[in-house]
């Protein structure tokens, strides 16, 4: 097998143009390798590309680990980071890997959807910035071309002060989300609701957002209506982790609870 150890993004994307497999934290790729689902024979190891670990204001480099985001990230993203895997996984796994793997259950993805983040990608021939909803196309399907590398995620400069992340799973540690959710609320009431694990891609509950954004001081009945709308907007499936019915219910309960935290 052939491995390359680029030190710069330019070297990394040049190696990718030959059809190599990018390797960052390995927490997704190695599971597939260990179970015999993949056997890459040409790997580009990205851990030594310092540029990818840069965190420049509102642009988080793809190589920034969950551990670092847990300590330094914006509130709801840091809360999400704290629920990613275990300490071992958070020391290795990166936000770029979460984005490129594009699991419906990716814990970091609802935050990116909630704040309308863009994904920065680069190839040997150029770079582009892709809005999150044009990047995530389906279950583990993205707009990323084979010769492109996710180099970072670009957040808006001004993030809502009130933001909260929550996750439902079968236990507190080391769990893949049954439902995960981010709610943000601006002082003028503008509310955003993004969810994971309830659709093929991270999604926004736009009708629910519109309804609750128009209410300056939501009453109990407004909150109940909000929860009902969120549950109606998601499109979950039944699988080995949960049923569609439970996910739908949990999505409404979780979104309402997180909105409550933003209103406090």
């Amino acid at each position: 097998m052939d491995t390359q150890y680029p030190k710069t993004i330019d070297e990394a994307v040049s190696a990718l143009s030959d059809g190599a497999t990018p390797l960052a934290g390995g927490t997704d790729l190695m599971v597939e390798v260990n179970f015999g689902h993949r056997r890459p024979d040409h790997v580009v190891a990205l851990r030594r590309v310092d540029e990818l670990a840069e965190w420049d204001g509102s642009t988080i480099g793809a190589g920034v680990t969950w551990r670092r985001i847990e300590l330094e990230g914006p509130k709801a993203l840091a809360e999400a980071a704290r629920t990613v895997g275990s300490p071992q996984i958070r020391n290795a796994g990166t936000i770029g890997g979460n984005v490129a793997t594009a699991s419906p259950a990716g814990d970091g993805l609802p935050f990116l959807a909630a704040v309308d983040a863009s994904i920065e990608v680069r190839s040997a021939t150029g770079s582009r910035s892709i809005q999150w909803d044009e990047f995530f196309l389906g279950v583990k399907k993205t707009a990323l071309e084979a010769d492109e590398l996710v180099t970072g995620v670009d957040l808006p400069e001004d993030l809502p002060e009130r933001q909260a992340f929550g996750k439902v799973g079968v236990r507190n540690a080391m769990v893949i989300a049954t439902v995960c959710c981010v709610v943000t609320r601006e002082l003028d009431g503008l509310t955003r609701v993004a969810l994971g694990s309830v659709a093929p891609t991270p999604m926004r509950a736009r009708q629910s957002e519109e309804m609750i954004s128009a209410v300056a001081r939501p009453s109990e009945s407004d909150l109940a209506e909000f929860a009902r709308l969120v549950a109606a907007e998601v499109s979950p499936i039944t699988d080995h982790r949960s049923t569609a019915e439970y996910r739908r219910h949990a999505a409404g309960v979780l979104a309402r609870r997180l909105l409550g935290r933003c209103l406090r």
Binding site: M1, L23, V31, V43, A45, R47, I89, A92
Partner: peptide
Amino acid sequence: VCACLVMAVD
């Protein structure tokens, strides 16, 4: 880290 998730070449 988990050594099972580190590719040996890395």
